[in-house]
Amino acid sequence: MVHIWRGLDEVPGDFGPAAVTVGNFDGVHRGHQQVLAQLSRTARESGSKTVAVTFDPHPAQVHRPDTAPDLIMGIEDRISVLLAYGLDAVLVLHYTLEFAQQSAEEFVKNVFVDGLRASAVVVGHDVRFGRGNSGDLGTMEELGRKYGFDVVVVEEFTEADSAQHAEHTASAPEAAEDEDDGAQRRCSSTWVREALDRGDVHTAAEILGRPHAMHGEVVHGASRGRALGFPTANLAHDSIGHIPADGIYAGWLVDAAGTRWPAAISVGSNPTFAGVARQVEAHVLDRPDEAPDDFDLYGQNVVVEFVERLRGMVAYRGPEALIEQMKVDVDQARRILVGAKPGA
């Protein structure tokens, strides 16, 4: 049985011993996956349960709300992906300015020692924790000796590792959360966001180990796509997931029943028409029936996965030129997706 705890008060008093890791895990990219793989190995060796500790909201949204980056995924998706790696539990801690005032030792004692009865803590070299990020790897090792848990350090997962992995497998592990540190850049949430911001969903997928996705409700739009012969499923503006750069993409739409449909996806304001707000919309290829009532996605919560960028946004002279380009986009998307493994 797997557990999702929304606070330390929900952890059973008899839970443990536990092998624990901690992080924001935005995107659960290959670096994070490497930590999770080591967590599982450590737990098997010690006969412990596996727990990932994460935070909601993201600390950056609390400390610097005006400049915090858009998240790659929402908390529910983060929990779901973490549990897909075979964890026994995910502990979500509500992050506040008051919570952030705990010293490094208070955090470790409250969460790892008293809360989860940790036998081991698995971290990367760059781990930081406690008030003002005052705790580092040396602090964690010192506290491990004091409170009786092992500290297992995971090597960084770099772009070279990611490229090698992409050649041999569609999914894998990894271990970091931030920037470049020299010759080889390590896998990080920052790098994923940078790739998405320039529309490079292929690189984002290599770092993530899967296509980047957005989740949202299908809402009514202006019906321009339907009038042009390319009806689209428009995602609500409060949809979850980092929006890639404007452009046209090949990808997948997963409906509420779990059926995957190949799709041509538009991100942007459609400059051919004036006054159109920025939106994400997906045209399902090879629909089962062109009758609107026979393929109604309105009100459904769907997933849109981005596989490859086809082009940027262009303002065309009129609807006719746009229709011709849309035909080209659909054909190109179909060619790309025919050889693509859905969800990989």
Rank of each mutant, 00 (worst) to 15 (best):
Q102P: 12
R334D: 05
P69Q: 03
V28F: 02
V123Q: 10
G241S: 10
V254I: 13
G229N: 04
T21P: 11
T21Q: 06
A18C: 15
L310W: 00
L297Y: 01
T272R: 14
E142V: 03
E141T: 10
R145C: 15
L143G: 14
S189A: 15
P262S: 04
Q33V: 13
D14K: 11
G144N: 03
D88K: 03
H3Y: 07
A256P: 02
Q279E: 03
I4D: 06
L87I: 10
V22G: 11
Q101E: 14
P244A: 09
H125Y: 11
G339C: 09
E10Q: 10
A213Y: 10
A277V: 11
S239W: 07
L87Q: 12
G135T: 13
A120H: 14
A175Y: 05
T190G: 08
M214G: 01
G339E: 09
A195H: 03
G138I: 12
S269G: 12
G138P: 10
E177D: 12
A175R: 05
T169K: 08
Q279W: 00
L208A: 13
G86T: 07
A256Q: 00
H220K: 08
R131I: 10
D293M: 05
D150R: 06
V304R: 00
G268Q: 01
H237M: 06
D126F: 07
Q33G: 15
D181N: 04
H220I: 01
V127G: 00
G312Y: 11
G132K: 08
G199V: 02
Q279A: 06
G135R: 05
G312A: 02
K327W: 04
P319G: 00
G258F: 01
A172I: 08
A282C: 05
V90F: 05
Q33R: 15
L116M: 14
Q164N: 12
R317C: 02
V153G: 00
T50V: 10
V22R: 06
R287G: 14
S134Q: 11
T190C: 04
I240D: 09
V90C: 12
Y95D: 12
A163N: 12
V303M: 01
A213P: 09
T96E: 14
G318P: 07
F99G: 11
T50W: 03
D181G: 03
V90P: 02
N110C: 08
L71C: 06
V280K: 01
D150F: 03
A172K: 08
V192I: 15
T259N: 03
G23P: 13
R6Y: 11
A60T: 06
D293K: 13
N234Q: 05
M140E: 06
G339K: 11
L116T: 04
R198E: 15
